[in-house]
């Protein structure tokens, strides 16, 4: 990449939070019951925001800095072990 002055302002590079800390949009927080999770990875596969990591041991971890709380993960969970918990209650 030629390091031309205008390209600094014209081109973008991948970085989290390009629209801010979108976790603040959330009203309901998805909480995974890790004990009952069957580690199928569907919540990871369908998460629109890519805020769920499917880890080496196949458990999942949610990035609450950016999770918007849409609830798609809870809806697709085949064993219904993701609870949507009101933020103020957490």
């Amino acid at each position: 990449m030629a390091d031309l002055e205008f390209t600094k302002y014209l081109l973008s590079r991948p970085a989290p939070g390009s629209a801010g800390a979108t976790g603040t949009w959330r009203t309901y927080r998805p909480v995974v019951n890790q004990d009952k999770c069957i580690k199928c990875g569907l919540c990871w596969l369908y998460c629109p925001e890519d805020t769920i990591d499917w880890l080496e041991d196949k458990s999942v971890r949610i990035n609450y800095d950016y999770c918007k709380g849409c609830g798609v993960c809870a809806e697709v969970c085949p064993v219904k072990v993701i609870d949507m918990v009101k933020e103020t209650v957490v």
Binding site: P16, G17, S18, A19, E49, D65
Partner: peptide, 19 residues
């Protein structure tokens, strides 16, 4: 399992386009 989409996008919650 690479992060192809960086979280913190401007999409509405539940956006099918990102899926």
């Amino acid at each position: 399992r690479d992060k192809f989409i960086m979280p913190g996008t401007a999409a509405c919650p539940g956006c099918p386009l990102l899926i």
